[in-house]
Each structure stands twice: as C-alpha cells, then as structure tokens.
Design a protein around this nucleic acid. Structure first.
Length: 922
RNA sequence: GCGGAUGUGGCGUAAUUGGUAGCCGCGCCAGACUUAGGAUCUGGUGUCGAGAGACGUGUGGGUUCGAGUCCCGUCAUCCGCACCA
C-alpha cells in the first residue's frame, strides 16, 4: 500500500486535537519534566523552515520523556508585543492588536501542520490583559523592594524606611544609584516628596536620570542589548547617548548572583562565557584624588592600584559631573568646544573613530602617594558609564593611556624592571616593580600581584580609597516611548510617581487615534483620552520594553488561568523550573539575563521555589538560506548553465529556490516567474540548466525563503521533522538544503512498506528471531543514547539502518514492529501512530512505554579480533564470545600466519584490549 | 586585543569519547525493470596504484603498542565582547 502521508497526518492531528491527547495536569504520581521553547514573536512574514528546528528538537525530547513515564509540560505561546506590529500600525493605521492576532493565527496554522505535542490549553500571549497583569504586578513588587547587600536579597522597601526613621543610613548596605548618608533626624525632617526621592535611589524598579541609548528614528530609548555597534538591532537605525529620566530595573544589584548562578546550571560553556563577559566583573580599587587649590575631590576606579606611582595625568569622561567643577576659566572655551564636538557625533561615529582626542581642564590633581601635581584632562576614551567615569592614567602600562600621552606629549614613567616603553606600553601584569616608593608605601622589588595587594591594603588603611568590585552590567532601562507594550501601573502626584494598587490590575492599554508621538513630543499614550486615575492623577505615558513580557512567561505556563496569582504555590512547587530550554543564542545577553534576574527577584520574595529558571539550555543553530543563481550573459536575455559560465561575461541573478530542484532549474517555471524572463533563452549542459548557489541569510530579497508549509505539502510533516534533524548537529548553524530530503522521504516509505505485503498489513504474532531482536535492540540503545545527548541527526541514520536490516530479514513480527513504532514516535509522530494502530493497538502511541534495551540480544556468538604487530593491522581472528584475554592472546600468537609477521622473533608484549584489538609488540 | 567554537571524501556528516577512519544520506557510476520519468530496486563509490599495497581526519611536532580523539605550537574560518581603566 502507498504511504499516504497527507491522509495519515490529517487524521492523526485531528485525533490528537479532539481527544486532547497532549493536555497535561499536575500529577503527583509521576515525575514532572518541563520542556520549553523560546516563544516566537509572530512576525508578518510567517515561519520559515529555520524556525521549527528547535521546536522539533524539543518536541522529540518531550515525546520521549512522556514515553518514559514523565509528566511532561510542553507549552507554547507568543511574545506578542513588539516594534514591527507598531511600525506597521503607524504606516497603515491598522491597530497592532489586529495585526498581531492575524499573525498569531498564521503561526498557529503553520505550527499545527508540523505535529507538535504542545498543550495549547496553556497558551499565553504577552499582550493579553490576563497575562500582562502579572508583568505589571511584578513591576509593582520591584518598585516596592530594595536590594540588601548584607543578605544578598531583595527586601521590602518598608524595612529600609524603618531603618532610616530609626538610625538613618547607619547599618544600611543596599544597592543604590548613589551612596547617601544621613541621620534619622535628618530623614524624619524631610518632606514626603524628599523622602520619596531618596527611596528612588534604592528601589529595584526606579525612575532615574541615566545615560540612555536614544534612537531618534524609532523615537524611543533602547536597552544595551538592543543596540549593537551603535545602531539599533531592530532596523539598524543610529543611536545616540542622551541623559533622560527613565524607569530602570536595578539588574546590577544581582550581578554577583547572576555570575555565580552560572556555575550551577547546565548551559553550554560558550553561552555562560558570553554572560560572564556581559556581566564583566572586575576586581580593583577606588581611590580619591584631590584637586590642587580646591575642595573638589574625585574618585577613580582602577584594577592596577600598583601603578599609582606611574600616574602622570588624570582623565575624565566628557559627560562626567566633575568636568564643570575642575575646568578653569582660561580653559573653559577650549573645553566647551571639545564637549560640543563630542556631542555632535553619534555613538556610531564615536565608535568608528578611534583617533586620540582630548582637552586639558586647567586643573591639577594631587597624587596621594607621590604627592606630585598631575594635570586633569578630558577625553572620550574614558566612558561615563563605567567605574566612576574618571581614571588615573598610567601611560607606561596601559596602551590607551600610552597613546594619549604620546599624542599630547605627557610624561611616561615605567614601573616595571626591564620593560621598554619607548615604542609601546607594557600592559602585562607581570614583572618586578621599580620607581614605586613614597608617602609610606614602598612597592619596589615586589611582583605586580604583590604590589596590587599591598597598595589596596595601604589605601584602605590610610583612607585614600577602598577595594571595589566593578561590573560592566548596567541597570536595564525599562521605559519605551511606544504604544504597543505594557502600560506602567504608575501615576504621578506632585510630579512624584506612585504605584497603583494591585487590585486595579490589569491596567489596560488604552485606545489612541494614532500610534505616533504627540505633537508636543510625548509618547503615543499621550493621545489616550482620560489616561488618568479615578482621582484624576495622570498615568505614566511610557510602556514597558519587549523583554518585560518574556521575563517570567515560563512561570505563567505552570498555571496560566490563575487570576489571583502569577502562579499558585502548588503548581510552582510541582513544575518548579524549566528542565530543558531550547532557543537561539541571540538572547544570551538579553532575555536570558533578564529572565534570570526576574526569577531571582521573585525567588527572594518567596513567591517561587527555584533560584534559576532554566536548568538546561540547548542552543539550536541558525538555519541559513541556500540561494540559487542563474547567470545572464551581459546585455542579452540568454542564461548560461553554471559550469559553462566561465566562457561568458555574466551577471549572477538570484532565482527563487522554489523553482530549483537539486540545483536544476525548472525552465518553464522560470519563464513564468517574471515577465522579463518569458522570452529567456538558455545554454544548457546535459540538457539541464544547473544553477549556482551560495549560503546567505534566509530572506525574501534573496529568494531563498523556504516555507515549511510547502515541504509539508510535498513530503509530509514527518519527513520535514526527520529531515530537519538529519541536516546536522542541532547546535550547528547550517544552510537549508533540500538536496537530500528525498532520501529521508524514501526512508519513511521503506518504513511504511515494512508493515505491508502488497495492500495487506503484514504483521505476524510469531516470536521474533534472534537477528530481528538484535537489530531492534541495537536501535533502542542507540536512539535512547542519542535523544539523551541531543544527537538527533545520528538517530535518523540508526533508524535507516534498522529498517534496512528488518526489510532484508523480511521481518513481520508484531512484537518488533510495534516497538519500532514507539521508537519512531518522537521523531515522526503521525506515521508512528498509524503503524501503532495497524499493528493492533487501540491506545495512542503517546501512551506507550519507551522500550528498554536488553543487552543480551546484542551479544555476539563470536568476536573478531584485529591482530596487529607493532600497531600495524595484519589479520583477523574469530574467537567464541566470552573467550578470556589470555586465550585470545594465545590464539593470536598461535594463528597459522603469525610466523610470517613475527619474523621468527619472540613477542615483547601482547596487548588485548576490550575493543577487539590484539596488538603484538615485537 | 580578550574569550568561545570549528577544521574529516565531490557535498551534509559519523566514529558512545584512546582501539580496524569515512556509518547514514545526497551526488556520481554501473546494472535491473519500465508506458523512457526528476519513479522504483540492486551493486559500486576516500586518494594513488594493473596489483599486492601505500597514503590519508587544516598544518608541524610530542605522548602511546595504537591518536580524528590527548598535549604543545601553527594556520584558516565562524561567533561573542571590546577605548570596561
């Protein structure tokens, strides 16, 4: 009988839907397993063939775990807020909710065709009020919390207020924007507004004046991970630095825990490294420098405290608040001119231009150890956002300082014995210190490491500074001047922000007449009518960023319909956290940091029971496009086949990959593709037109987008699933190449034919033969190992081998064929279900039990040993299974032809290793 | 510059972790069948060589009876971070 995949797949997807086969509930009799995909943003372009790669992998794993008796939570939803829908809305006036809904429906249709075992009853959409209520709720909790550095935990802000009222800042060790000191009396004397302003300095969700990435083209600020090389990740528009009052999340408070947590989770080393890099911990010291003839004192951060005797100048970031305090009257004009020149450049221009620039402030600082006066400069190579925005420059031992010193002709003092700083600085942290003695500190003769420690100790004792750990990780900017996002549950009274009562949530996104900023430059929510509380207080006009809704969605799947909590205690204690998370690396420094932060925050509040959200994480590789080209001879409408193009002057033209098969062009389809090709002529090779190809990003403009729907239509979902896995290791990036899909499809037909003799089902109740059992159990062992190790591509090969073996054995044993159906079920669920039923079952294959490998069947009657002499293979000997090593050794030496290889010598050593090798050392 | 990864036939890849390199698939070659089709089936296919055999995992060394796998160096490609003090 013909393998009619269309009919089979239609029937079973309908069956699963009608019977809620994949619905899952908490079941304390079964161990849980939580498998999650990174939920998609439903874009207008729909899914291409690269998107389902990770989904297929997680689906295989989910089905496998279920067959092993786990209660598997495998949900799906949509990250539905985002810029493209809003920009589309601006252009067309179409409400983003409508576009989003439409796109979601399209995604769902495409996903359904592939046969995923999602429990769709748990679907969530971040743009739905029932969902974003909990995003807003978490924000309120963050607003009402501060981070205590003593207990390393978020605590209610009320505790801090109590402390302030009783003993001021005494005993407070909290994460803050600026270190403050006041007494209880001072606190109690402050007005409500003043107190609120101080609290803002500590809240985990706070309103702060910070340097932000402002993207004029998008009309919004962006988080650091949304900007790359000075342009926005979405759209590639220029980004500039600007100080704005914005909502922020104090992610930096969690830097150390985010770093340490990486040690206890099963992620790839490269992803952990990326996060470590992003967090950027560096140990160093802060030191105070006094400005000569002034009361001004400023703080610098350095990891090279040992080089303090080599400081020959100081540098401030152009944006540093110290700048205005130290500029002298004579230098003011020069400094202003420099600051203007910096401001007029975009971030991108600044990054491209690495030439040395700077200006002298006119002031001098006093080196606290050498007592020398050193000039204070301003330069844009010092970043306002890192450390204190001010540095001590040691040109001898820092290449950037060196370049600056050479450019402005500033002195360079070498501090390490034997180093040559005439051409370049000596940056390595090694060597013996010289020229480093003064003011009671003598580093001479020490190694760099000793000197760093000694200097740190010295400055702490003398009160010149303190040991400090700095992180590169910045607080997350949480405001977006956009419409299509979660509204903040914040209103303003006397200009101060207040959170709404939790009972008022969700605060629904209001309707607006246009999705553009208002004429006065306010965000789009400024257009909303009556955007105010019942008492008439105005509500925040910004909305939350994209990562807000995706930061805790995995928790919501555990209990998606709960309207009194994000997740109930019971549901959370059962499902705990994600056991397996599959998604792309592009979220390494965004979503995967924010989620971990958000989760840790909720954990601190005792609302959830796990400190890390994702135990194991697998990154599927990107699927690139494989573009095809035709070659038009210049100034003609004639196209020359790939291997003959060298004889002509040709222009390569992208051709739609859907009219090319195995690099052979469908000439009729090509003529019909574009009017200008209707009259095209061809120079063929072997009567075919062969196209050239290249690996490029999958995109419409390259005509290399392959829609999974087309593959399903032509080959079926099971072939698509198998083929995507067969393409190569899951974590590797690879081009989508349809050459080869026929092989996989052929395999499924062979599998199908195994169960048939003509049109009749060919299943017998006889006992399986030894050979059949061996073939099957080899497969069980291999596939089990492969799935556990995410090596799905090699499983596909194993299936092919087994089916070939069973076919040539003419296997019709029911026992074997049923087990085979179970094994194939995670990969190709539709055909597996059909075969499962053909062999006489009435339950679904999803409820079967994953078979165990019986090693007995794999044992060989005899074992062949390869005998080698001095490591060179010579001959094989066959011995009965279970023959002892000694006997194998003896037999190897006694083998009739040994004499020839031994050359009459006595062996020095005979090595018999378990892997069927005998090596005789002569 | 720092960090991470990867280099194996014409191509995608495999080698369960130090044990006969190239499984499986594509492509190609030959054959069978055929209403001649981009269908199906069978066999072959790393390189050199008529052959026995020799050589082969980017490259140069090393450890080992034995290395794609381990160690040291080097080259190439990809990715992440990057004026982070």
């Amino acid at each position: 009988m013909e393998y009619n995949f269309k009919e089979i797949e239609k029937r079973w997807s309908q069956f699963w839907k009608e019977n809620n086969t994949y619905r899952v509930q908490e079941d304390h009799n079964k161990p849980k397993f939580y498998v999650l995909d990174m939920f998609p943003y439903p874009s207008g372009a729909g899914l291409h063939v690269g998107h389902p790669l990770g989904y297929i992998a997680s689906d295989i794993y989910s089905r496998y775990k279920r067959l092993q008796g786990f209660n598997v939570l495998h949900p799906m939803g949509y990250d539905a807020y985002g810029l493209p829908a809003e920009q589309y809305a601006i252009q067309t006036g179409q409400h983003p909710a409508i576009t989003t809904e439409k796109n979601i429906n399209r995604y769902r249709e495409q996903l359904d065709k592939i046969g995923f075992c999602y429990d769709w009853s748990r679907e969530i959409r971040t743009c739905e009020p029932e969902y974003y209520k909990w995003t807003q709720w978490a924000f309120i909790k963050m607003f009402g919390s501060y981070y205590c550095n003593n207990t390393c935990k978020a605590r209610p802000i009320e505790e801090l207020i109590e402390n302030f009222a009783k003993q001021g800042t005494d005993g407070v060790n909290a994460a803050c924007s600026e270190e403050l000191q006041f007494t209880a009396a001072e606190w109690n004397a402050k007005s409500e507004k003043e107190q609120q302003e101080i609290l803002m300095n500590y809240r985990i969700a706070y309103l702060g004046n910070t340097m932000v990435n402002w993207c004029p083209a998008l009309g919004t600020v962006l988080a650091n991970d949304e900007v790359s090389e000075g342009v926005s990740v979405r759209g590639g528009y220029p980004v500039e630095q600007r100080v704005m009052r914005q909502w922020c999340l104090r992610v930096s408070a969690y830097a150390q825990r985010l770093l340490e947590g990486l040690d206890n989770i099963n992620w790839t080393e490269s992803l952990k490294e990326t996060q470590r890099n992003w967090i950027g911990r560096s140990e160093g010291a802060e030191m105070q420098f006094k400005v000569d003839n002034s009361d001004v004192e400023f703080t610098i951060f350095t990891t090279r405290a040992d080089t303090v005797f080599g400081v020959t100048f100081m540098v401030l970031a152009p944006e540093s608040e110290y700048v205005s305090q130290v500029v002298t009257a004579e230098q003011r004009a020069a400094v202003d001119a420099y600051l203007d020149s910096i401001k007029s450049r975009t971030e991108r221009e600044r990054m491209m231009d690495r030439s040395v620039s700077g200006v002298f402030t006119g002031s001098y600082a006093v080196n606290p150890l050498s007592g020398k006066n050193i000039p204070i400069w301003i330069s844009d190579y010092v970043l306002a956002g890192y450390g204190t925005g001010a540095i001590m420059a040691v040109p001898a031992h820092d290449s950037r300082d060196y370049a600056f010193a050479k450019h402005f002709n500033l002195p360079i003092i070498p501090l390490i014995e034997g180093c040559d700083v005439s051409e370049e600085s000596f940056d390595a942290k090694e060597g013996i210190m010289i020229n480093s003695c003064g003011n009671g500190l003598d580093l001479n003769g020490m190694t760099v490491k000793e000197a760093i420690a000694a200097t740190k100790k010295f400055i702490e004792e003398k009160g010149l500074g303190r040991v400090k750990v700095n992180y590169r990780l910045r607080d997350a900017i949480f405001s977006r001047q956009r419409y299509w996002g979660e509204p903040f549950p914040i209103y303003y009274k006397d200009g101060m922000p207040y959170v709404m009562d939790e009972k008022e949530l969700p605060l629904q996104l209001p309707e607006v007449d246009k999705f553009l900023p208002t004429e006065s430059g306010e965000p789009p929510l400024g257009r909303a009518k009556n955007w105010a509380t019942a008492e008439g207080y105005p509500i925040e006009l910004c909305t939350m960023p994209g990562f807000a809704g995706s930061s805790a969605y995995y928790l919501r799947y555990m209990d998606p319909k709960n309207d009194v909590a994000l997740v109930s205690k019971e549901a959370n204690e059962y499902w705990r956290n994600v056991d397996l998370y599959i998604g792309g690396t592009e979220h390494a420094t965004g979503h995967l940091i924010y989620s971990r932060f958000w989760n840790k925050f909720l954990f601190d509040l005792g609302l959830i029971c796990e400190d890390e959200p994702f135990k194991k994480l697998v990154n599927q590789g990107m699927i690139q496009g494989r573009s095809n080209f035709v070659y038009r001879i210049k100034d003609t409408n004639t196209f020359v086949s790939y291997n003959m193009k060298k004889d002509y002057d040709v222009t390569p033209i992208h051709v739609d990959v859907n009219i090319v098969s195995n690099d052979v062009l469908d000439i009729e389809a090509f003529k019909a593709w574009r009017p200008e090709f209707a009259t095209a002529e061809f120079i063929l090779e072997d009567d075919k037109y062969i196209c050239g190809w290249a690996v490029e990003k999958m995109s419409k403009s390259m005509f290399n987008v392959v829609n999974p729907d087309d593959i399903v239509e032509r080959y079926g979902a099971d072939t698509l699933r198998f083929y995507e896995m067969f393409l190569g290791p899951l974590e590797q990036s690879k081009p989508w190449d349809t050459n080869g899909i026929d092989g996989v499809h052929r395999f499924l037909r062979k599998l199908w034919n195994l169960y048939f003799q003509g049109d009749a089902v060919n299943v017998d109740n006889r006992a399986a033969t030894k050979e059949e059992l061996k073939s099957l159990h080899k497969l069980i062992k291999k596939v089990t190992w492969d799935i556990e190790n995410f090596s799905f591509n090699t499983s596909v090969s194993a299936f092919m081998i087994c089916v070939n073996e069973l076919t040539s054995l003419k296997c019709n044993s029911c026992e074997i064929l049923q087990t085979l159906a179970i094994l194939i079920a995670p990969f190709a669920p539709h055909i597996a279900e059909e075969l499962w039923h053909l062999t006489g079952n009435t339950t679904t294959v999803c409820d079967a039990q994953w078979p165990k490998c019986n090693e007995e069947y794999l044992k060989e009657d005899s074992v062949t040993y390869a005998v080698s002499f001095n490591g060179k293979a010579r001959f094989n000997i066959e011995v009965a299974a279970g023959t002892s090593r000694e006997d194998v050794e003896k037999m190897a030496l006694e083998h009739e032809s040994s004499a020839r290889w031994m050359d009459g010598k006595t062996p020095k050593k005979v090595i018999v290793v378990p892997n069927k090798i005998v090596n005789i050392v002569i």
